[in-house]
């Protein structure tokens, strides 16, 4: 099939970008979206033009490196699917496809479609861990964890940190990402000892990074490629209020 691509081009973080139009031809419907971009890049390179920079790595939907705001939605039109797992059969011959980077103050554009997501790393560094040094662990079966709790923790833990929640949110809020980690660790008995400190620190860091606040639109949940639920945000709020009311951290 033949398509018209409208791609955000921006030379570097300090340049002003704009949408450029590129036609691509003979695209197979079995191609993945990123393979279609590979085709575009080979074309550009052969013409002596700079290929479009975009983040991607595993191309199997788990590393969270691919992003792309495709036709007005993060990771494109297919629900519960990362851009790398999106296939061209979801488009029609003759379609025009807009491709933009994530937009958020906390995710500045690095080049073209590449954004800087170190804000997420900073939030995890603020407290998204259990303080257990190597070698300190006791036998794994010593603390039974009800299957349901383990499953809920796993649901939250399946976050891939891609940032689609931020991209989808009209407030560029990172609460789904932060709450997924807060929830995972607050649900598990191992994570309970430092749960107050964790939620306070992670929320403070999230605010510092310049993300917006949640207004419960639910867009994050709808666009999340791993279908992380906003019940996690409610849980984080609970954890946050109880920490703020009862912790000794003034």
């Amino acid at each position: 099939m033949n398509l018209t691509l409208k791609v955000w081009r921006q030379k570097d973080a300090n340049s002003k970008g704009k949408i450029e139009t590129y036609p691509v031809t003979d695209i197979s419907s079995d191609m993945s979206f990123l393979e279609m971009l590979d085709v575009l890049n080979e074309q550009l390179l052969e013409k002596g033009e700079d290929p479009v920079a975009f983040d991607h790595d595993c191309r199997e939907g788990i590393c969270g490196m691919c992003s792309l705001f495709i036709n007005g939605r993060p990771h494109g039109p297919q629900n519960a699917t990362t851009t790398c797992q999106l296939h061209m059969r979801k488009f029609k011959d003759g379609d025009t496809i807009f491709i933009e980077p994530w937009r958020a103050k906390a995710f500045p554009v690095v080049k073209d479609l590449v954004v800087d997501r170190t804000a997420f790393d900073n939030i995890i560094q603020a407290g998204g861990y259990i303080s257990v040094s190597t070698g300190n662990a006791r036998d794994a079966n010593e603390t039974p964890i009800p299957k349901e709790i383990a499953d809920q923790a796993m649901d939250a833990a399946s976050c891939i940190g891609c940032g689609a929640c931020v991209a989808a949110c009209k407030n560029a809020s990172a609460m789904l990402f932060v709450s997924a980690k807060v929830s995972q660790l607050a649900l598990l008995p191992q994570g309970k000892p430092e749960k107050q400190k964790r939620v306070e620190a992670m929320v403070a860091q999230m605010d510092k990074e310049g993300f917006g606040a949640c207004t419960n639109t639910g867009a994050c949940e709808a666009e999340c490629p791993k279908e992380i639920s906003i019940t996690n945000i409610a849980r984080m709020n609970r954890e946050y209020f109880s920490a703020k009311l009862s912790s000794n951290n003034t």
């Binding site: 409208k6 705001f69 939605r73 933009e100 103050k105 009209k170 917006g212 709808a222």
Partner: peptide
């Protein structure tokens, strides 16, 4: 302030009320 630059093409209406 969390999104100083808007999207050129935005269909986010599909995922929230």
């Amino acid at each position: 302030s969390a999104r100083p630059q808007k999207y050129e093409y935005d269909k986010l209406g599909q995922s929230s009320t």
